[in-house]
């Protein structure tokens, strides 16, 4: 579906993304994780040309992405930014309708098919009840749902997510995680068989571990590790990558752990046994 080879990006003379290569298969959920400043969001913005001046090769369905017009590119990949910023003056419905932009000509009116796709996007994103409200009146979690609905209205087979759980409280994080899982599980648009392809960048390790089928770790602009979520438990790996100690919590019936920075723990109050840095702490939360 997507092939990236030797992608490099410099901004103001500083290298942000350095020679990154990877593939995303059709129907796959790939998460790119890494600390703040690792170049994750910049990598995503190279793919959809929000950053236009990158070097390297990006191919979509074996075609060089550079040859595609911006509209053609947007018909292949939709994008959910970190936040809705300071958008004001549009109702949720009007905002979600903007997702139909790459499919419309200058004077072309909205068709019944557009209306159906917008309705479906609102339903999939569980944002139907919000459609009459103004975007600026929404909470962080509601805004995230609306951003996802707008990307779904774009009707593209590849969905790019930029820090989808950043700025959200725990309940909203859980809702968004569930939502993205169900979107990934839903059939891809455009009549192509199979699931929707998702590429997410995040510093939320637990989101990546629970949602993605494969991970790439980015550090200082370079891809330094790739593998399945269960393989990230290797002692010392997370600590090296994120330069902090972690506690790991096993989940019965799954090889994917939950991780918490060890610094979060209050050793006086908790009953947890502090383990040496990098060691797994076998503990099942009650």
């Amino acid at each position: 579906m997507l092939e990236v080879e030797g992608l490099c990006l410099s901004i103001g003379g500083r290298e942000i993304v350095k020679d990154v290569s990877f593939r995303v298969e059709r129907g796959e959920f790939l998460a790119v994780v890494g600390p703040n400043g690792a170049g994750k969001s910049s990598l995503l913005k190279c793919l959809n040309r929000v950053h236009p001046r990158w070097k390297g090769e990006v191919r979509l369905n074996s075609l060089p992405a550079r040859r595609l017009s911006q509209k053609a590119l947007a018909r292949q990949m939709s994008y959910v930014p970190q936040s809705a910023g300071d958008i004001a003056g549009f109702t949720v419905r009007q905002f979600v309708e903007q997702g139909r932009y790459p499919w419309k000509g200058a004077f072309e009116a909205e068709s019944a098919e557009d209306a159906r796709i917008v309705e479906e996007a609102l339903r999939l994103a569980k944002a139907e009840d919000l459609s009459g409200r103004f975007v600026e009146s929404l909470s962080g979690g509601e805004r995230q749902k609306v951003l996802i609905a707008t990307a779904l209205a774009q009707d593209a087979p590849l969905l790019l997510l930029d820090e989808p759980t950043a700025y959200l409280d725990y309940r909203s994080q859980a809702e968004v995680l569930e939502l993205i899982r169900s979107i990934h599980g839903a059939e891809a648009p455009g009549g192509s068989a199979g699931r929707r392809t998702v590429l997410a960048v995040t510093h939320d390790l637990n989101f990546a571990l629970q949602a993605a089928g494969r991970l790439i770790v980015l550090s200082e602009g370079r891809a330094v590790w790739t593998g399945k979520p269960g393989e990230l438990v290797e002692p010392g790996l997370l600590e090296r990558l994120f330069r902090t100690d972690f506690l790991r919590f096993e989940d019965a019936g799954s090889d994917v752990p939950f991780v918490v920075p060890a610094e979060f723990r209050n050793t006086k109050a908790s009953g947890l046994r502090p383990g040496p840095a990098g060691d797994a702490v076998p503990c099942t939360p009650k």
Partner: peptide
Amino acid sequence: LCGPEMAVARG
């Protein structure tokens, strides 16, 4: 009105 990032991403 929604910002340059959103505009480019929509095509």
